[in-house]
Computed example of a mutant assay.
Amino acid sequence: MTSIDDVRTRAVGAQRQRRAMSTGRRGDRIFSGAALGSGVFVLVIMAAIALFLVWKAVPALRANEANFFTTTEWNANGDPPRFGVAQLAFGTVMSAAMALVMATPVAIGIALFIGFYAPRRLAEGLGFVVDLLAAVPSIIYGLWGLHFLVTNSQGVVEFLNGTLGWIPLFAGDAVGGQSLFIGSVVLAIMILPIISSITREVFLQVPTAHIEAAQALGATRWETIRLSVLPYGRSGMISAMMLGLGRALGETVAIALVLSTVAGINWQVLEPGGNTFAANIVRTFGESGEIGRSALIASGLVLFVITMVVNMAARAIVARRKEFV
Rank of each mutant, 00 (worst) to 15 (best):
V253R: 06
E158I: 11
L88T: 03
A248F: 03
M237L: 15
G286H: 04
S294F: 07
R10I: 05
I191W: 05
A57Q: 09
L270R: 09
L146H: 11
L100W: 00
P272E: 02
G125S: 07
A240H: 06
G176E: 00
I291C: 01
G236H: 01
E124S: 15
A188Y: 04
S138N: 08
V150D: 05
G165M: 06
I49C: 08
G246S: 04
A63T: 04
L164E: 06
P137S: 00
M241Q: 03
F68H: 05
A213V: 14
I182Y: 08
T284H: 13
N266Q: 02
I114Q: 08
E251V: 12
T163E: 11
M237E: 06
A20M: 10
V40Y: 06
R320G: 08
V85Q: 09
R221N: 08
G264M: 00
I49Y: 03
F41E: 00
A99S: 11
A278P: 05
F181Y: 11
N275S: 13
F304D: 03
T92H: 01
S179T: 03
R320C: 04
I265Y: 09
L88D: 00
I45E: 01
F90P: 05
K322N: 12
L204C: 02
M190G: 02
M98E: 01
A11V: 09
Q15V: 14
Y117T: 14
A76P: 10
L36D: 13
Y141P: 12
I140V: 11
T261L: 11
E323Y: 10
A298H: 10
F203A: 09
A279M: 01
L204E: 10
T220V: 08
F69T: 15
V12Y: 14
P168L: 06
G145Q: 11
G24P: 00
S153E: 01
R62K: 14
M242A: 10
S38N: 09
R226W: 08
I110K: 03
N311M: 12
P137Q: 01
A76M: 13
L217E: 15
W222A: 07
Q268D: 10
S153A: 11
N275Q: 10
L61P: 00
A134M: 09
I139T: 02
G165I: 06
I306F: 04
A209N: 11
A96H: 04
G27P: 02
R200Q: 13
L61A: 02
L53V: 08
G172K: 02
Y117W: 11
R8A: 12
A118D: 07
T284Q: 15
L270C: 05
A50S: 13
Q215W: 00
A256L: 07
A263K: 09
N152S: 15
R221G: 05
F90C: 04
